[in-house]
Amino acid sequence: MATYDFVFSGLGLKDWCNKDGTGSAGPVSMADLMAQSGGKEIPSPSLWDLPFPSMDALHEACAAFPKSRVLTKGLEQGFLEIKDNLSLVLDPLTQPLSWALSGTLSLFQETPWWLMIPLLLAVVMLVSRSVKLVGFVALSFALLSFINYYDYAIQTLAVIFVCAFLCVLVGVPIGIAMSRSDALQRTAIPVLDMLQTLPPFVYLIPLIFLFSVTEPKLYGIAIILYAIVPVVRLTDLGIRLVDKDVIEAADAFGMTNRQKLYKVEIPLALPNIMAGVNQTIMMSLAMVVIASLVSAPGLGVLVLRGIRNLELGVGLVSGLGIVLLAVILDRTTKLALARINAAQRD
């Protein structure tokens, strides 16, 4: 006898419950009746023990009522059913991502270190115009290379490079569209919130079902989904924050919408967009570590090895390597941002 029996008997659903239940529900309830008529009081459960009328509690009262596992099972089943069709569409669509990732990875790895490191330093110099930072980057890479972590670090950089680039490529137009349309903004913000707050492991699961684990696009998509949010948000915000007076002046002098976008809105929103790019890069770095669970190469693999084999040293050193990369990426983009800010301070 379960707590919520009365619900089903009250609604006259006893038959439905018993029909495709275990078949023993009838006799059991008869036994209950017998027990009651026999005068044997079943101690009525105290109010403190009252279970929430959850799926499982209701299932106890009525065998035909589904348990909550059925729900999750159903989701699984449903996903598996559409999976083939879905990957039929998504596979070719996302194939370029795989190519980009494996191409960039091999390019970064094939390039000898004595070419790669100066190249990186040149890029840092170009973006940040800071000799101090270049010195720091040189030192960091010398250190990482000296302890034989150069390959891993460069793999991580390659993945971040591709993913962050794609985030900006896709995210900025989405942000611009959001800034144009309030309706789109209203629908996009919950999606962005969800992407940002879902534990990263969670969207690895359906991706694993969809794509083979050996394909680079699997982790590529995971990283992009996770890291695209800030650049979208801040592009939208940045364009909405552009001084209304300046927009009015642009209109008054007869700018077309396109001219307004390229000559006024994007340049004036650039500090915010760059702040978004900075965040996006940092988040792809965070994700590339988690994505090593699904074969993303780089320092994350070492962290994972540290955890799996309890190799404390490997875990710690590779963790520190990630910190170094994070600092380098953050400082470089922040200095670029500061330069833009200085150029258009009001």
Binding site: D245, V246, A249, A252, F253, G254, A343
Partner: peptide, 22 residues
């Protein structure tokens, strides 16, 4: 037509200047 007039026939000066900072 409106855009042509704004570009060629009318100019405007604003209270808060509204210059392009960049």
């Amino acid at each position: 037509m409106l855009r042509r007039i704004r570009r060629e026939e009318m100019s405007m000066v604003f209270q808060k200047f509204a210059l392009l900072p960049h």
